[in-house]
Design a protein around this nucleic acid. Structure first.
Lengths: 246, 246
DNA sequence: CGTATCATTGAGCTTAGTCAAAAAGTGTGG
DNA sequence: CCACACTTTTTGACTAAGCTCAATGATACG
């Protein structure tokens, strides 16, 4: 295993850490910086959860392998995202780097929690970070809840675009393979590919490289192109039965 | 609106609060107890997030209505669950009671956060609760990620069973309509109904009432009955390409 | 005891999954 | 720099599953 950290490598990446602005600045001293190869495990299901992590560069996936061999991605981690929060003291999911040159900062949980005990501001920051993790998962739920594959892929592209560049740029470099996208959206690779082609033909996107997407028509990605034919919750129902189920 | 709290009603439910063991016991004094009619809004998207809530009895749904009129449930809230965490200062989702006689305790956020500043133990409890919320969402993601409708419904039943009774009882009273289940699983009502019939025919469950499910064969609910024909990640691949994507 | 709402079932159609194969990248060693 | 092996991506044909529309039972509630 090459998880050990060579001293020169560490120094190189540590500069990156100290020069990067982020909400856990006060913990820079404690952090262990760790560069990861593509596919490398950062933490694995069932092992004691001794660290919280923050992605510095690259991307990672938190996933499980089902009984039938399918992989499901439960959280997609991009620069700035903090992960490793568990309610027990073992990790519930395995996290692996999905981009070459992914670098994470590892914060020893126990020590950080002790610091938080005497530093209310830090405690608030940690809460805030946990709430961000919640928002991230809710966003993924919304994407998974969409009906057609094109909608899923479309909103996925928008999500990545938003998360990778604070401002809404119209070019995104997807940090992952079609397989990872498939596992993230819970659809097959072939369907991901077809959905991209469809969006391309519709003029919603342009593929500059296989993993570089230019967003041409934002609206076309945000919702299905097909006009809504049926309205399950129309004005009438909402007003008439205000307190009923539907 | 009958959101105002009648003093007698409050007293009645307050007894419930003070007699119930729960992780936020130290905040009982601050809590506003609120009984809800079925369908009643507890908090609504866009409004200032001034409270954190805990479900005391009943059930609630956190949801959004999409552009096409579809509702998606982003979090299902059962007794003991805490909700209302946001990264901004407005709610991202609307929460409504889905069972008649749902009672929630409302904790004023600002005041609780101030208390947490001087009470590290409380701060830890809040973190722990947030981590539970994370685990809940991840569970829902896993369910949404399943392939067939029967699997989704099956794992949904198991999830509810687990969450409603700490121990694994084999009878569950679903606290929601088929419509809510459909919106939770992101499938149509008809498909929910058909999946239940299928599970019933397979002998996996028995329906004692329309909303009372007896779990007969746990295993049949946990995974699809169909034997896995194709393995996307077989041993060979895993070993050979240890550091590759798949 | 009507009257909504909720739940189930059926028929036809659309969509995504599966299996298969080709095309386009990627990287490595000679 | 090219050739070769390997991975990733795309496309096609077929099949299976779920959605939509529609109609009929079952329940709950006033």
């Amino acid at each position: 295993m090459t998880t050990a950290i060579s001293s020169n490598g560490t120094n190189q990446y540590r500069r990156l850490l100290t020069h990067q602005p982020h909400p856990l600045k006060s913990l820079d001293q404690l952090a262990v910086v760790r560069p990861c190869r593509r596919g490398q495990e950062i933490c694995s299901e069932g092992k004691p959860a001794e660290y919280w992590y923050r992605v510095m560069t690259g991307a990672a996936r938190s996933s499980v392998i089902r009984a039938d061999g399918r992989r499901q991605i439960v959280d997609l981690l991009l620069p700035g995202d903090v992960f490793g929060f568990t309610s027990g003291d073992e990790w519930d999911y395995t996290v692996e780097a999905i981009a070459e040159g992914t670098v994470v900062a590892a914060y020893p949980r126990k020590r950080v929690e002790m610091l938080a005990d005497s530093d209310p501001q830090l405690a608030r920051e940690i809460r805030q970070i946990a709430f961000h993790a919640l928002a991230r998962l809710q966003m993924q739920l919304l994407i998974l809840g969409r009906t057609t594959a094109s909608e899923k892929v479309g909103s996925f592209i928008l999500e990545i675009a938003t998360r990778l560049s604070a401002e809404s740029a119209n070019s995104v470099a997807l940090p992952m393979s079609r397989y990872d996208i498939a596992d993230y959206l819970a659809i097959s690779v072939e369907t991901v590919s077809r959905a991209l082609t469809k969006l391309r033909h519709r003029g919603a996107i342009k593929l500059l490289g296989t993993r570089i997407v230019r967003i041409v028509h934002r609206d076309a990605l945000e919702e299905a192109v097909e006009a809504p034919t049926r309205h399950r919750i129309d004005e009438q129902t909402t007003i008439t039965n205000y307190n009923s189920q539907r």
